[in-house]
């Protein structure tokens, strides 16, 4: 489902003496449907970079990034947009929304953009919000004023509302209490069970060991460290 072939990434800082910072070299990995893979490595090793290269908001310098057969490194913007609508979900650490839009609609939006019936989409969003313990009184409000943990759960609900065949998850349990952590982990397990290919970053070792089948240490791809 997700496959990287010899991908490299570097940043060129034109305004700081054109410094070129190579951050990734020779990255190759393969994630099959129904598999959950954890990216590990110290802070700054390039876990998030790798994830963004897969999602397409970082441009790979060379190599192929194949998601459901589409090479994200070469594809046209509209092909990537279609991929993100239908196939590839991303639960980031930060919620980014249009101000003033109610939480329920924020969560239902991925379904609405693929043309799902509005009532059905809102129902599904409501059941996920309930499961993630967001009080019903907050559903009509915009999530911009919510606490960090609440925003994170809204973001998770948004990422799981559509059954994406491929999912990228960045630190899903970072600021959650035990009960919500449990819910999030079971959401991940359910997604896995229905055949989603998942790439995740988990600093929470317990969570990682529970949901992940494999670990990939990204420092292997850090230039200068790899042989």
């Amino acid at each position: 489902m997700i496959e990287l072939r010899d991908v490299s990434k570097s940043f060129t800082l034109h305004n700081q003496g054109s410094a070129v910072i190579p951050v990734m070299e020779g990255a190759s990995l393969k994630v099959a449907p129904g598999e959950c893979v954890a990216l590990t490595g110290a802070s700054g090793a390039g876990k998030s970079t790798l994830m963004r290269v897969i999602y397409g908001n970082y441009l790979a310098a060379s190599g192929q990034v194949l998601v459901a057969g589409l090479d994200v490194a070469q594809a046209e913007p509209r092909e990537i947009l279609a991929l993100r609508r239908e196939t590839l979900g991303y639960v980031s650490q930060f919620l980014r929304v249009v101000p003033r839009v109610p939480t329920l609609e924020v969560v239902a939006e991925p379904l609405l953009t693929i043309g799902c019936d509005k009532t059905e989409a809102l129902d599904k969003a409501a059941s996920l919000l309930a499961r993630l313990n967001i009080p019903e009184g907050l559903w009509r409000l915009s999530p911009t004023t919510f606490s960090g943990g609440e925003q994170q759960r809204v973001n998770i609900a948004r990422g799981f509302v559509h059954d994406y065949p491929a999912l990228l998850i960045d630190e899903p349990t970072a600021s959650l209490d035990a009960q919500n952590r449990e819910t999030v982990l079971s959401l991940i397990e359910e997604a896995n069970a229905r055949g989603a290919a998942i790439v995740g970053i988990f600093h929470d070792v317990g969570a990682r060991e529970r949901v992940c089948d494999r670990e990939i240490n990204v420092s292997e791809f850090t230039p200068g460290v790899a042989a």
């Binding site: 963004r52 397409g56 908001n57 970082y58 441009l59 913007p77 990537i80």
Partner: peptide, 9 residues
């Protein structure tokens, strides 16, 4: 390019 790609990278 893609909006978030141009803005993020």
């Amino acid at each position: 390019g893609l909006t978030d790609q141009v803005l993020d990278d």
